[in-house]
Amino acid sequence: MNNAVIVKAKRTVIGKKDGVLKHLSPHKLAAPILKQLSIGIESEINDCILGNVVGPGGNVARLSALEANLPLSVPGLTLDRQCSAGLEAIRLAGYLVQGGAGDCYIAGGVESTSTSLFEKRARFSPEHIGDPDMGIAAEFVAEKYRISREMQDQYASLSYKRAWKSFENGLFDKEILPLSNLSSDEVFHQKRNMDRIISRAKPAFQKNGTVTAANSCGINDGACAVLIMSEKKANELSLKPILRFIDSEVTGVHPFYPGIAPVSAIRQLLDRNGLSIEEIDLFEINEAFASKIMACTNELKIPIEKVNVRGGAIAIGHPYGASGAMLVTRLFYEVQRQPKARYVVAAIGSGGGIGLAVLFEAVPD
């Protein structure tokens, strides 16, 4: 079996819906990332795999590859596993490399909520089960797993503080490809007193609820992808491997509780690979809602010091199809800052009750 390694990772800035990226369609967002990742190795790329959730439909990956002037031989595959789509694209590329189907893939995701043609979301679950919106489902998770408003607000505050500190220290600079003269995420364009905003926020989805707009992610635009290839090909091209794809797991839970779905995926993944929570140095778990992060970390007994150490979607944003790739990109750069880190996990829960977790090993110098 071939080793699959990630050698490059880039993302755009993240914009709010109808914000700084509102004029860019998905293929216009993704194309600069694909172009940057493929510089000098265009002829080596077997395929481009992108996640996309809210449209415009069609094969966004092929359109993006053509927009990026990649060789016509790069076909393009677009997939949708809701919020897990970008991570699923990387997972699929990892297995394709391991299985010998190809040596070199660009994988990630893109989302333009600003230009989406869909007025309503797709169904997550059939009527006979029930189909709650994600905000209501976050309330269900908070209630079932006893996650209080105070716990959620404390975590949201931590996410904002971590993200702002990372931004001010320039820690996001390497992962961002400037786009349309934009080099920082829209959330950082204006400093605000987030603790006051968090404490004063009203329940957003349920009367007397605990989930608010301030302890939840926003609706966002952005693109993110990685260059993943066989370790042999990386050596041939003199590209340094940073993360080695080890294994992954995808599981399903009741559609009322998508926020808890990463728990079963992470447990099964670590059990199969003979690893414990203590042996994982870093976790990136998508912050769609603070109730989700608190429920997952409590159930798995993950120290919060290991989770989303540079902030996450609550602070920076959640461009659905790209978010899973952003988790991997964050790990890609973080293991370079933490040379003692060995095993890391990216995980995400999606509408419909799907949990996806991917295990990587940091490649030592």
Rank of each mutant, 00 (worst) to 15 (best):
Y343G: 09
V345I: 15
S116R: 14
E175I: 00
E299P: 02
S114I: 10
N193G: 02
G209T: 01
A325M: 07
V97F: 02
I266L: 10
T78N: 03
N59V: 04
I106F: 03
T113Q: 13
F140Y: 15
F360E: 08
A315C: 10
D221G: 03
Y333M: 05
D103F: 00
S64H: 02
K8G: 11
M1E: 05
L179C: 01
L269D: 00
V7E: 06
V187I: 09
P303D: 13
R337L: 12
G19I: 11
F289W: 08
T113E: 10
P364D: 11
L66I: 15
G135K: 02
Q336N: 07
A163G: 07
G100I: 06
K301Y: 03
G312A: 07
V7G: 09
I49D: 00
L66M: 14
S180R: 08
A346F: 04
P56L: 15
G19M: 13
R162C: 06
G324E: 02
F283C: 07
V335D: 00
A362W: 04
G135R: 02
F360A: 07
Y155D: 04
E284G: 08
A101K: 09
G355N: 13
F167L: 02
A138E: 00
G218R: 12
D365I: 09
Y257N: 04
S64F: 04
L72Q: 10
T115R: 15
A357C: 03
R149D: 09
A325R: 05
K17C: 12
A156K: 05
S43A: 13
K340S: 15
E44K: 14
I49F: 01
K17M: 13
S159T: 06
P71K: 03
I266E: 13
L92K: 11
R267E: 14
K207H: 11
G222C: 09
G40R: 12
D153G: 10
G353L: 01
I39R: 15
K120G: 02
S116V: 01
L227M: 07
L29G: 10
N220R: 07
K120H: 14
W164D: 05
E231G: 05
I304M: 14
E139G: 04
I6T: 12
L179N: 02
P258Q: 11
L77G: 00
I90S: 06
L96H: 08
E168H: 10
P303T: 00
L70F: 06
C83P: 01
A93E: 04
F360L: 11
L356M: 13
V211E: 09
M294T: 09
E236R: 09
R91A: 08
D103S: 12
R123A: 11
L37I: 02
